[in-house]
């Protein structure tokens, strides 16, 4: 066994453990549509007073495509998104327009026809799991808070918080780079920076799996960043558990310059790279929480517990022992 690196003592969670011990145990299958269908989750959030980008309209079938012009008539910018998409695929972020020419935020010019074709493909299921027929939603384009401008290249950062039974246990901010093509996805070359749940300050950052301190394109430090509205974000994340009932949940948030934190999406199978970004395993925190009775606890208490759980890291325990 010693031939292999020791992932046990830092408490790293592997895919099998995530699927078998957490997703299968805490996320009932019947609840998956609540987060896999972006329309349902948006609806759910609005009903419960949680902030999301405003929905402008939905294209449900080919016939509806003609409604598109009407939907975006009065909008200068908007976002097209497959309702069942994942991994950022099929998302078109339009930042401006001049008659039937549209400009994406990455600077590409697309025609009205190209947009129509894109919507046809989306409806046909090109971006949905298993190629099932899909729908297109048109929503408010988030005007990203400029606080992250010096650590983002082109795209926009988003914040991922892992919530276990309503307790925020781990968080990171994903920063787009030139090589990730403006997308914040880590495996496309984006930067992931772990956020300390207790303070909302980034503590550690990686590109892929290798640690780094400065943004590869802008050169600004990515460690030691203070995330604004951190306590609001924790509260939103914790309440996402209440509205979905999913015990092991990933909540993606963005920071709008005017509206503050908005829920971009929720994920019932959140990825594991957040551990690399934090240089900490999930298991010590989860084991700590699994031993407690969390039912009926208030949101502030859950958040306090999340901060407490962070102290369960072997690294933290070692640090406290020294102090």
């Amino acid at each position: 066994m010693s031939l292999l690196p020791d992932l046990k003592s830092p408490g790293v969670m592997g895919i099998n453990s995530r699927n078998g011990n957490y997703i299968m145990r805490y996320n009932p299958r019947r609840l998956f549509p609540l987060v896999d269908d972006k329309l349902i989750s948006k609806d759910l959030a609005v009903q419960n007073g949680l902030p999301v980008p405003e929905l402008y309209g939905v294209i449900r079938m080919l016939h509806d495509i003609r409604k598109f012009d009407q939907i975006v008539e009065s909008k200068e910018d908007f976002v097209l998104k497959p309702v069942h998409g994942s991994g950022g695929n099929g998302i078109m972020v339009i930042g401006g327009r001049s008659r039937d020419r549209y400009r994406t935020t990455t600077g590409k010019i697309v025609t009205r026809d190209e947009i129509a074709h894109h919507m046809e493909n989306t409806l046909g299921g090109q971006f949905s799991l298993g190629g099932q027929p899909d729908q297109v939603l048109v929503e408010y384009r988030v005007k990203f808070d400029p606080v992250f401008d010096h650590v983002s290249y082109l795209g926009v950062p988003d914040i991922r918080i892992i919530v276990f039974k309503g307790v925020p246990v781990m968080a990171m901010i994903r920063l787009p780079t030139r090589s990730s093509d403006g997308k914040a996805n880590l495996h496309m070359g984006g930067v992931g920076a772990g956020i300390d749940i207790r303070t909302g300050i980034t503590t550690n950052a990686v590109v892929g799996t290798s640690p780094m301190h400065e943004h590869p394109d802008t050169g600004s430090p990515v460690v030691g960043l203070k995330i604004p509205h951190w306590d609001d974000m924790l509260e939103i994340a914790s309440r996402c558990y209440e509205i979905t009932g999913l015990g092991y949940l990933g909540v993606d948030l963005v920071l709008d310059a005017a509206l503050g934190p908005l829920i971009l999406e929720m994920n019932a199978r959140p990825g594991l790279n957040i551990q690399i970004a934090n240089a900490a395993g999930l298991l010590p925190r989860l084991h700590f929480l699994e031993a407690l009775e969390l039912d009926g606890m208030s949101v502030p208490d859950r958040i306090a517990l999340g901060k407490e759980a962070t102290n369960r890291d072997p690294r933290e325990i070692a640090r406290m022992a020294v102090a």
Binding site: P10, G14, I15, N16, T209
Partner: peptide, 15 residues
């Protein structure tokens, strides 16, 4: 529910 062999490489930095 143990680790997959490839995960030892993926999480090597955390070992």
């Amino acid at each position: 529910t143990g680790f997959r062999l490839t995960e030892y490489r993926r999480f090597k930095a955390m070992a």
